[in-house]
């Protein structure tokens, strides 16, 4: 039973590779087949260019995502909790929200400076534009889900806490924050995905990291490397979402259907 299922699932992956192989062999000259890509992969795994690109992209996503969470979660909880605070802040954010982060790229290149600093022997240069675009990608899903999370909490939970003697900040700490957490978690998972989408676009356009590696493989004519880049980005995106999911689940042992 189980082996049959695994056979079918492996057939699925093999089928995908088979289609790629056939299209690569019969299709346009420019499309490398799986073998060529695997060859390029082997070559790249030993090269520092590859690992530098991975490190740079990962650090950018990590940094931008962390900032987005640190700002988006408290801000969203407050907007959801206090109508008045929300009225003063949310409309301004709503003006900016519909603009896809990628459309900010020309603006960020113009307006945001690069930050260069050195720590002893190592010196860093942070492309704040790329970090900002990545941040925007993660920020709005996290913000919106935090707001929605608070609004989804039935008022009676707050009432119950108040009747048990909780002060406002205690209600926030014991009802609003934990009650919104499942939704915040959803926002983080979505935000992590969108952080990668926007990071790749920003890197293709303004440089560095896996996005640029993939793009310059195209402009430089080493086509198999395009697919090395895509696959690597896919794996990293998958791994980071899985980590976010895992951390989220460990914070939500009380959810129905949770295994923790």
């Amino acid at each position: 039973m189980d082996t049959a299922k695994w056979a079918k699932r492996s057939a699925s992956i093999l089928g995908l590779l088979g289609v790629w192989f056939v299209v690569g062999a019969l299709g346009p000259q420019t499309l490398p087949g799986p073998a060529a890509v695997a060859g390029a992969f082997v070559g790249y795994v030993g090269s520092p260019v590859y690992w530098n690109a991975i490190t740079l992209s990962t650090l950018r996503v990590l940094g931008a995502f962390t900032i987005a969470a640190l700002i988006g979660v408290p801000l969203g909880l407050l907007i959801g909790w206090s109508v008045v605070f929300g009225d003063f802040t949310y409309p301004a954010l709503e003006l900016v929200r519909p603009i896809p982060p990628i459309a900010w790229i020309p603006f960020t290149i113009l307006v945001l400076p690069s930050l260069a600093f050195s720590l002893g022997i190592a010196s860093f240069e942070i492309d704040t534009g790329i970090v900002f675009i990545t941040f925007l990608g993660a920020f709005f899903p996290i913000l919106l889900n935090a707001i929605a999370g608070v609004r989804s909490i039935d008022d009676e939970y707050s009432r119950a806490a108040q009747s048990l003697g909780a002060a406002d900040w205690q209600t926030f700490r014991h009802v609003i924050y934990p009650g919104a957490l499942p939704s915040v978690h959803t926002g983080m998972v979505v935000g992590m995905g969108l952080a990668w989408v926007n990071l790749v676009a920003a890197e293709m356009i303004s440089g560095g990291g896996l996005g640029f590696m993939t793009w310059s493989a195209y402009t430089g004519g080493s086509y198999p490397v395009i697919f090395v880049g895509m696959i690597t980005i896919g794996i990293l995106g998958y791994v980071s979402s899985t980590i976010v999911r895992y951390i989220g689940a460990s914070q939500l042992p009380w959810m129905e259907g949770s295994t923790a």
Binding site: W215, I233, Y238, S241
Partner: peptide, 16 residues
Amino acid sequence: LRPIPPVAWVPASILL
């Protein structure tokens, strides 16, 4: 295929 962000398909699709 799903984890590959759509934007990462840009070079490949220009190519093809």
